[in-house]
Amino acid sequence: MNSKKDVKEIVVCVTGASGAIYAKRLLEELKKDESVITSLVVSKMGISTIKYELNMDIHDFYKLADNVYNEDDFYAPIASGSHKFDSAVIVPCSMKSVSAVANGYADNLIARVCDICLKEHRKLVLITRETPLNAIHLENMTKLAKLGVVIMPPVPAFYSFPKTVDDIIYFTVGRILDNLRIKNNLVKRWGDE
Rank of each mutant, 00 (worst) to 15 (best):
H83M: 14
L30Y: 11
N185F: 01
S3M: 05
K188R: 14
R112K: 15
S160M: 07
F61G: 03
K31G: 04
T49S: 07
V101Q: 09
C93G: 04
E34I: 11
K5I: 14
P153Y: 04
I127A: 13
P132N: 09
I21D: 05
T142V: 03
K44N: 14
G46V: 09
F161W: 02
I47C: 11
V91D: 02
H83G: 03
L133Q: 09
E139W: 00
S87W: 05
G104F: 06
I37G: 00
W190S: 06
N140Q: 01
D33Q: 05
V155P: 00
A135V: 12
L147K: 06
I127L: 15
V36W: 09
M141K: 05
F61A: 08
F171W: 12
M95P: 10
K32E: 15
G174K: 05
M152R: 00
A17Y: 07
A111W: 13
S35R: 10
I110S: 09
L133S: 02
V165S: 11
F171P: 01
A23E: 02
R189P: 09
A102L: 12
H137C: 02
P92C: 08
D66I: 03
C117E: 14
K96S: 12
L27I: 07
G191Y: 07
S18F: 02
N185L: 10
R122L: 11
D107I: 14
P132C: 08
D86H: 04
R112W: 10
P162E: 06
A20V: 09
H59R: 07
A135M: 13
T142K: 05
K44Y: 07
L177T: 10
H137V: 03
I47D: 02
I58Y: 01
K8C: 03
G148W: 01
V14C: 11
Y170G: 01
E34C: 07
E120L: 03
T164G: 04
S94P: 09
P162L: 08
L180K: 08
I90W: 07
N184T: 11
G148R: 00
F161S: 12
Y62A: 01
Y22A: 00
I176V: 14
I50M: 04
E130Y: 03
I151L: 09
I50Y: 03
S160E: 05
P162T: 07
L30K: 04
Y170L: 15
N67I: 09
E71F: 06
R175M: 15
R181T: 07
L177G: 08
T172V: 15
F161K: 12
K4A: 05
I78Q: 08
A17R: 08
V41A: 04
G191A: 10
P132M: 11
K63D: 13
L30S: 02
L40E: 03
K32W: 03
L27R: 08
K63P: 00
R189M: 14
V41T: 10
P132A: 11
D33E: 13
V149T: 04
I58V: 15
T131E: 10
S97Y: 15
A111C: 12
S160Y: 00
A135L: 14
Y75W: 09
K5R: 14
H83E: 12
V14T: 13
K96C: 04
N134G: 01
I136S: 10
V91W: 09
R181Q: 12
V36A: 02
V36M: 05
D66M: 06
G148P: 00
T164Q: 09
V173W: 15
E139I: 00
V41H: 06
N185W: 01
L144W: 00
H137G: 03
T172W: 05
L30Q: 06
I136Y: 00
K31V: 02
